[in-house]
Design a protein around this nucleic acid. Sequence first.
DNA 1: CGTCAGACTAGAACACGTTCCAATTCTGCG
DNA 2: CGCAGAATTGGAACGTGTTCTAGTCTGACG
Lengths: 196, 196
Amino acid sequence: MDVEPATLTKSQAARRERVIRAALDLGASGGYDSVQMRDVATSAGVALGTIYRYFSSKDHLLAAAMVEWTHDLERRVGQRPPKGDTTAERVGDVLRRATRAMEKEPKLSESVVTALLSPDRGAASCQEDVSASMTRILSMALGDDFDPAFQAQVTRTLGHVWFSSLIGWVNGWSGFTKVSDELDLATHLVLDQYDR
Amino acid sequence: MDVEPATLTKSQAARRERVIRAALDLGASGGYDSVQMRDVATSAGVALGTIYRYFSSKDHLLAAAMVEWTHDLERRVGQRPPKGDTTAERVGDVLRRATRAMEKEPKLSESVVTALLSPDRGAASCQEDVSASMTRILSMALGDDFDPAFQAQVTRTLGHVWFSSLIGWVNGWSGFTKVSDELDLATHLVLDQYDR
DNA sequence: CGTCAGACTAGAACACGTTCCAATTCTGCG
DNA sequence: CGCAGAATTGGAACGTGTTCTAGTCTGACG
């Protein structure tokens, strides 16, 4: 009902990847509602039941896609570290990188974020993954110059603001600029007491 | 497809109330999944279709219930203002009041919060209501001693942290104590620079 | 090479939110 | 009271996520 990548054969991993890809394609063109499991199956050239061998639910499937996306971002940030003189600028930089990607594919982001909110067991574990990844990304921007407890709290708090604003955007009561502003202001709120 | 209370006759308002009550009862005993529209209907003594005259969806129904709950809390906080010497203590006080109620009815809270996350149009407008209400509640705890812009940002940020931690709790990857801690630490993070 | 367990397939079947419909019952107005 | 229009009802019907079943394919191992 939920298989960890480690135990998959090559062809299985390929199948899993094809399924995710198909889901992403559908999501990118029509949003959450048009990611229909029957369509994902045909489009991935796989039987409907097979999808459920890899993912516990539609939400788990889409949430898993978001996990991959977040890990990609984390890797990229690791390779090209955040730019900026102050901590606030570096944090703003990574948050902007995170949101810009979503801004370019609004339908897809809506699909993926919606799924991430599901109470489904599989999706919930993806939430943990994503939030952990986001925490690490923010840590990179913060650097090691702070008291660890303080740093941990800042990253978690900003992670919450990020997540919550994202929801506001997905559910349509705030535009993308609102999300950026919110993040920007929160960043300064918690950081301006320390640098500058 | 969505009727505002203002235009309802007495018997209609009663029906609406009965429907909400039925949904809350079911939610309190079995959580989100056991709030089934057919059951809500029979339990409220109403036809299935009638529910959809008052609410656009199951999620809208449950989210509307949460709006009432939040308004109650807001009213209570207005009547018995938050206690505490420092701002942080007062903020902690209202946040604790907000979470304690949910802690007592975990299944019910799960139902209601889950619904609040839905992308459904009706539910989304309830999200705005709830978040606006929460902002006002936090403002009461902050008082008028701050720069309005600063106050606005603090309330929004704490609102985000509250909302996001709630999700973490509902989806089962953090206990209630974690939620309180998170809120507590975030509160101090943004406020300790000003009072103490 | 033969075989056996597990993965895969096609498709039926099921569950529950949502919509639709025809018939009936309210409600307010002349 | 009598009537028109709205609200409500019971229940069928629909869509889509999820599960189940019976049969087929695959690939690892003796």
